[in-house]
Each structure stands twice: as C-alpha cells, then as structure tokens.
C-alpha cells in the first residue's frame, strides 16, 4: 500500500493553527457571549478536529471510500444529536389539560 508523504511544513503549519485555536478557545472563555459561549467553543473545536482528521490522520489524501467512512461517522453523530435535540425543542409544545 502506498503511503502519501506529507512535508514537515504542512505538519508545522497545522500544529501552529491548532495552538492558535487553543488560544482562541481560552480567550473566548473570558468573554461572556451568553448563549453563544458554547456555540463559539464548539465551532473552534470543530475546526481543530477537522484539521486533525484532514491532515494528521491523512484523510485528505485517502481514497473516496475512506472519506465516505469518515463522513458516515459524522452523519450518524448528526442523527443522534439532532433527533435528541428535537425532543428537547418540542417537549414544551404540548400541554396536557385533564
């Protein structure tokens, strides 16, 4: 099986980007954005995770089948999170009057 050789420059650049992401996460924690605190933290985490998966885990250079497998994991994560959240969103819509 052929291995894709990634230059060290790319690794260092991604490493730097991850450090910046960490600094941003810490910085954002000191600013009160109310409901958006969690949104911002998750957004930064998602970007960092994407970088790790794409470059450090070599998914950028992998076959389409591998990319499909990775995507499948996230689609399934979306299913559990979205449907569970739908429950919380719609629970209050119905009030039982005896």
């Amino acid at each position: 099986m052929s291995e894709h050789i990634v230059s060290k420059k790319v690794y260092y650049a991604i490493f730097a980007a991850l450090l910046i992401g960490t600094a941003l996460t810490i910085g954002a924690a000191f600013i009160n954005l109310h409901n958006f605190n969690i949104v911002v933290a998750l957004l930064i985490a998602a970007v960092k995770a994407t970088l790790v998966i794409y470059f450090f885990m070599h998914v950028k250079y992998a076959s389409r089948l591998t990319k499909l497998c990775v995507a499948l994991g996230f689609i399934w994560l979306f299913i559990i999170v979205s449907i569970t959240m739908t429950d919380y969103l719609t629970r209050g819509w119905f009030t039982y009057v005896p």
Partner: peptide, 18 residues
C-alpha cells in the same frame, strides 16, 4: 434501525411530536 430508538421512550417525558 438507527431511526427508531425513541419508541422505547413513549412513556418517558419525550416530546409527543417526536
């Protein structure tokens, strides 16, 4: 099979709509 789990939760406080 992944889209039916909530039928175990009908009598919990799960949303009626869900």
């Amino acid at each position: 099979g992944f889209l039916v789990w909530g039928h175990h939760l009908f009598v919990s406080t799960q949303s009626v709509y869900l």
